[in-house]
């Protein structure tokens, strides 16, 4: 029997070759969708972080800048009728923080800077909200100082009651992942871990506040903005740790619904990410 021979430029393939090609295509009909199903089904889930890109929001509140640029707004009343305040972390466009300008003012990337200081003043901020796990940030499009500032009760006198075991007023050692709040809260999903490391580096280098994400034993998460012991920026010191698991010591301060860890950068140690859910407290 004459052995079949295939030539690609001929119009017909020999039957035995055509049969194998048909079987290969049939196999791919199983392999291709099965691969898509397995990858999408078994991949790690995504957070509920939201970035309202394109949906502009205007908020009025009081601007504070120590140690990070916040807009404090009244978000409601507690059970006793006292106002509850919420702090919105202000960040810039792209991978930039809401930046301190020369002369003490602040500026949005690409916009003229405010020459005068804004701390404690009433401002109207326009931008896109980013929120997840009860924390909110805003990518600022524009900000203006209000001539007739809305009078709030002094924000520092009214706080929500602590609700997690991490909220200790003394020095603590925390274990978590160094990341940036803009991406982690919703601009990117996932906004953490090895795949996001480069982006976190760029965001921290661009002045966005560094943040420690701490995951508790049962999976609950808390977020801690990181500043130096005296409130100075730690961004440059933390660049090499972005996306890594670290332990770090410092003094905790609650600012309404945010925690700030005034950390001693000398205490930073890399830790295995497998131990991140062990929250260690120390004096």
């Amino acid at each position: 029997m004459q052995e079949e021979f295939y030539i690609g430029w001929q119009t017909e393939a020999p039957p035995s070759f055509a049969r194998v090609v048909r079987r290969s295509v049939t196999g791919l009909c199983v392999l291709v969708p099965l691969t898509a199903i397995l990858i999408t089904y078994f991949q790690t889930g995504f957070s509920n972080g939201t970035f309202e890109f394109g949906k502009k929001t205007e908020l009025e509140g009081i601007f504070s800048e120590n140690p990070f640029p916040f807009l404090t707004i009244e978000s409601g009343k507690d059970a006793t009728g006292n106002p509850v305040f919420q702090k919105i972390l202000l960040v810039g466009k792209g991978k930039f923080g809401f930046q301190k300008a020369e002369g003490g003012g602040w500026r949005v990337e690409g916009e003229p800077a405010f020459a005068e200081a804004m701390a404690g003043k009433g401002v109207k901020v326009s931008g896109f909200l980013i929120y997840n796990d009860g924390k909110t940030a805003m990518e600022v499009e524009s900000i203006e100082i209000q001539e007739e500032a809305k009078e709030f009760e002094k924000p520092s006198t009214v706080y929500r009651p602590p609700s997690t075991v991490h909220r200790l007023p003394s020095a603590v050692q925390l274990r978590g992942e160094i990341t940036d709040p803009k991406c982690l809260l919703g601009v990117m999903n996932p906004g953490q871990g090895k795949p996001h490391r480069d982006c976190a580096v760029r965001c921290l280098a661009g002045g966005i506040a560094p943040m420690l994400k701490v995951t508790g034993a049962s999976g609950e998460t808390e977020y801690y903005l990181l500043a130096g012991a005296n409130g100075e920026a730690l961004n440059d010191r933390l660049l090499e740790y972005a996306g890594d698991g670290v332990q770090i010591c410092g003094r905790l301060e609650q600012q309404d619904d945010w925690w700030v860890l005034y950390a001693d950068p000398a205490t930073i140690r890399r830790v295995n990410k497998g131990t991140l859910n062990v929250g260690v407290m120390c004096n």
Partner: peptide, 15 residues
């Protein structure tokens, strides 16, 4: 992109 260095530079110097 949208960072403080060129994207292709960022690719090699971020991490």
């Amino acid at each position: 992109t949208q960072g403080n260095v060129d994207p292709l530079v960022s690719l090699f110097v971020s991490n």
